[in-house]
């Protein structure tokens, strides 16, 4: 199922940081992983990913290095920084508040109905 774009945008940063928390990755790998982990729900466009990654790098949330670890091509790997982990924690908390609020509202009808 494809999710509406605006909902995805705000949380993309969080998802990318979460991916990088597990291991260092290059751009293409992130898109693959994200799509695999979310059962193709999140089909992130590369055109969205790279500006976002470069932005995060400039803010010091991630840093990059070149490596040719698993193939002949040199790839630009990204690694999450301490600052980035902090941001991830903030984003997670923010997301949890948001999603539980949404859930409460959605279930709110049900609880009200039960009350009657």
């Amino acid at each position: 199922m494809a999710i509406e774009k605006s909902l995805l945008n705000g949380s993309t940063t969080m998802l990318i940081l979460k991916l990088l928390e597990d291991k260092d990755m290059y751009g293409y790998q992130m898109i693959e992983e994200l799509s695999k982990k979310s059962d193709d729900t999140f089909a992130l466009k590369a055109g969205t990913l790279y500006p976002l990654l470069h932005n995060l790098e400039q803010q010091g949330m991630v840093c990059s290095y070149d490596d040719n670890a698993d193939c002949a091509r040199v790839r630009k790997y990204y690694n999450i920084t301490k600052k980035g982990k902090g941001l991830l924690a903030d984003k997670k908390a923010e997301w949890q508040t948001y999603s539980s609020a949404v859930n409460r509202v959605l279930q709110g009808g049900a609880t009200l109905a039960e009350a009657y």
Binding site: K45, G47, Y50, P51, H54, Q58
Partner: peptide, 17 residues
């Protein structure tokens, strides 16, 4: 095609760099 509009990608990257 998967990459997205080059002008938009370029503009975004320009803002960052």
């Amino acid at each position: 095609e998967q990459m997205g509009d080059p002008i938009m990608v370029g503009t975004e990257l320009d803002r960052t760099h």
